[in-house]
Design a binder for these strands. Structure first.
Lengths: 328, 328
DNA sequence: CTGAAAGCGCTTACAG
DNA sequence: CTGAAAGCGCTTACAG
């Protein structure tokens, strides 16, 4: 049994043409004569030929692979968000013959992999303000796409959800449910997501002619949500927009302990539609990001960037949706 | 600014030796003269040389990459288990210069990737009994490691937790907490995990001189757990081993609705130590698999298999541990 | 122990 | 439009 895969050489011999011609057909070069093309295509399918990517890589200096950079901390890998990103990226790149490589956020390694053509570009998820990697990559002019708007403005391609629109969605929903005395537990206010969700919520509340909402700053963590809820438990509010499901999961038991029933006394809307949203009691109404779609778009933008590095950077912002459950 | 990475050629010129010699030093061939080796090493570090993997791949017929095969269903990607696997594999293969490629379970693609040297081997997680992929890979003699013992015995390398020992751990704990009338909600009894957890639990219960436990078959799902709990709610039992946290999360509200307090009236032990275990009310005592360690071992076994395909297949079984929380 | 040389399987100017 | 040929950057028999 022959373990050696079919090569271009063999296809060429069978089709009675040169290797160059087969190569052109494989790569879809338009100038090949129609009849010849047909002969070659038949030879390809009869042999089951697939190009050897190492050989191709060697001459094109393309890896045929993009990287998904995880934070150094294993922490975020556990996040279901991560799986949704993968589910969005894969269907876009597989048909292109591009592989998805998982890599940790070690800066040297990422830059090295890119420089040495082991990776054609990278998708960065969960970068924080202090992370120097985005700027490093921009300065080296290496293809990169961020999964969120960077903390400080920079000439980089990113894909994000319209955070402010998400806050507004929450406000509109609470109002439609009869809330008149709104409050919010925000994310960390030094992050774009924290700021924008608050701004959107505030503006929509004002748009409904309601009083300025009570604002307590949180930190996106379960404990942070619980702490913020303690400060809110005795306030005169009847609806709370909590800027992450995880914080909401921390807040719910606190509200209950203070005798505030959800949704009867106070309605709650979260953000993310992550697993805590479903596992909470009651299950959370929440703002959902179309993560799979966003990830697919990141993959498309990255591939585009790899193929046409000269193109100007462009970013894309997606609209969030509301998932209604029993907490409101 | 020169974007071209340093090549073997340049290092050889700088060190005043042939390319072959540099190659030998890079690959740790022992026969190189000590002095020469030092000169070459200096040239390497002064230039920051890293081998071009496409070129190397082309001649060695090794991809320098292994695949992590996800189930076709995007479903399981969302599982935190997946992230723990990645966190375990990466530290093992990075130092070896091996990449981790994510791929879906399409059989043709997996076999093709392996045959065409785009992947040196694959790790299969979440395969079920009907999945033909493991057998396909064995028959083609392609390197593969399973994340669990296969449903039907086959000559394949796998890494698993000692499921029976996990069941015994649960039994011992319940008994030590004073339970005398045990019950269990099992996994699907056609799976090895379902069978073994039950067997281990039963044997340990018998070993303590207690009566045969009440057994209700479940299916590892939340709803299945709830359904099984309804059949158990009015039984005369004071301790339940539930073979997955997810089922336990479904069972807990049912028990509560039937007026059975956890842990006062009935103690509960789950399995997996997954996120539902923490998010349950009360949080679950549960059997934990050392997933990161197991994943690291899978990576090691796979790399070994790639390097020495002749070696006999061996598998590894890890011991589970008990995580005690408030449900017991 | 070391080097000259062949060759891995492609792509791509360059002629024609 | 097509082919002959060079070349991508390595590894590895093969001599010496």
């Amino acid at each position: 049994m022959d373990r050696r895969p079919v090569t271009l050489e063999e296809v060429a011999r069978i089709a009675g043409v040169s290797r160059a011609t087969v190569s052109r057909v494989v790569n879809g070069v338009a100038t090949v004569d129609g009849e010849l093309r047909r002969v070659v295509e038949k030879a390809i399918s009869s042999t089951g030929y697939t190009p050897n990517r190492a050989a191709r890589s060697l001459v094109t200096r393309r890896a045929g692979a993009i990287g998904l950079v995880l934070p150094d901390e294993g922490r975020t890998v556990h996040d279901p968000y991560f799986g949704r990103v993968v589910a969005g990226v894969l269907p876009v790149i597989r048909p292109l013959g591009v592989q998805l490589v998982l890599t940790t956020g070690d800066h040297r390694e990422v830059v090295d992999d890119l420089r040495q053509n082991r990776l054609d570009g990278v998708i960065l998820i969960h970068t924080h303000g202090a992370d120097p990697l985005p700027r490093l990559l921009i300065e080296a002019d290496l293809p990169v796409v961020l999964a969120a708007r960077p903390v400080r403005p920079m000439p980089i391609t990113y894909v994000d959800v319209d955070q402010a629109a998400g806050g507004a969605l929450a406000a509109d929903h609470l109002v439609s449910r009869g809330c008149r005395r709104p409050a919010t537990i925000t994310g960390p206010l030094e992050t774009p997501a924290g700021q924008d969700r608050l701004r959107g919520f505030r503006e929509a509340v004002a748009g409904h002619g309601l009083p300025e909402p009570v604002v307590v700053e949180g930190d996106f963590s379960r404990e942070g949500g619980a702490a913020a809820a303690r400060r809110l438990a005795d306030a005169d509010v009847d609806g709370v927009f909590i800027a992450s499901d995880l914080m909401a999961a921390g807040a719910l038991p606190v509200l209950r302990d203070h005798g505030r029933r959800v949704p009867e006394d106070v309605k709650v809307v979260g953000f993310d539609d992550s697993s805590p949203a479903v596992e909470c009691d009651p299950p959370l109404t929440t703002v959902r990001q179309p993560v799979e779609d966003m990830a697919a778009e990141m993959a498309r933008l990255l591939v585009q960037r790899v193929e046409r590095p000269d193109r100007p950077v462009s970013s894309v912002v997606f609209a969030p949706t509301l998932v209604v459950r029993r907490s409101s």
